[in-house]
C-alpha cells in the first residue's frame, strides 16, 4: 500500500518532464504556454500530495469523525498557487493574441524581432 501512495509523486515527475521538453523544444507560443501550465500542474500536484495521509478525512474540526485528517496547509497554498497560475496563463494567452495580430505568426522564431 505504501508504494501506491507514491503514484502522485511519480505523476508529478512525468508531468514536469513533459513540460520541460515542451518549454525547451517547442517554438509555438500556444504550446509553450501549455508547457507552463503543465509545469504548474506538476508542482501543484507534488505539493498537494505531500499533505495526504492514508485514510485521512477532510480537515474540518466541527463534527469531524474520529481518526486522522489530511494536512490543510498544502491545500490552502496550492489553491493560492492555482489562482495565480490562471492569471499568468490568461495574460500569456492575451500576449500570444497580440503577437499574432502584429506579426501574423505565433512561431517564436518567426515573430521574433529583437536579436543580439
Amino acid at each position: 500500500m505504501g508504494s501506491l501512495l507514491n503514484f502522485p509523486f511519480l505523476a508529478a515527475v512525468i508531468l514536469a518532464g513533459i513540460a520541460l521538453y515542451i518549454l525547451i523544444f517547442k517554438k509555438n507560443m500556444i504550446k509553450f504556454i501549455m508547457g507552463i501550465a503543465l509545469l504548474e500542474a506538476s508542482v501543484n500536484l507534488f505539493f498537494v500530495a505531500l499533505g495526504y495521509r492514508e485514510g485521512g478525512g477532510a480537515p474540518i474540526y466541527t463534527n469531524s469523525p474520529a481518526g486522522i485528517m489530511v494536512l490543510p496547509v498544502p491545500q490552502a497554498l496550492v489553491l493560492t498557487s492555482i489562482v495565480i497560475g490562471v492569471s499568468i496563463l490568461a495574460l500569456m494567452l492575451s500576449m500570444a493574441i497580440r503577437t499574432y495580430r502584429h506579426t501574423g505568426n505565433i512561431d517564436t522564431e518567426k515573430s521574433r524581432r529583437m536579436k543580439g
Binding site: M95, T99, H102, M114
Partner: peptide, 16 residues
C-alpha cells in the same frame, strides 16, 4: 509590436 515580445519573455521566465 516588440513590446509584447518583451513582456512575454519576462512573464515566461518569471513563471518558470
Amino acid at each position: 509590436g516588440d513590446t509584447v515580445e518583451g513582456g512575454f519573455k519576462y512573464l515566461s521566465i518569471s513563471a518558470i
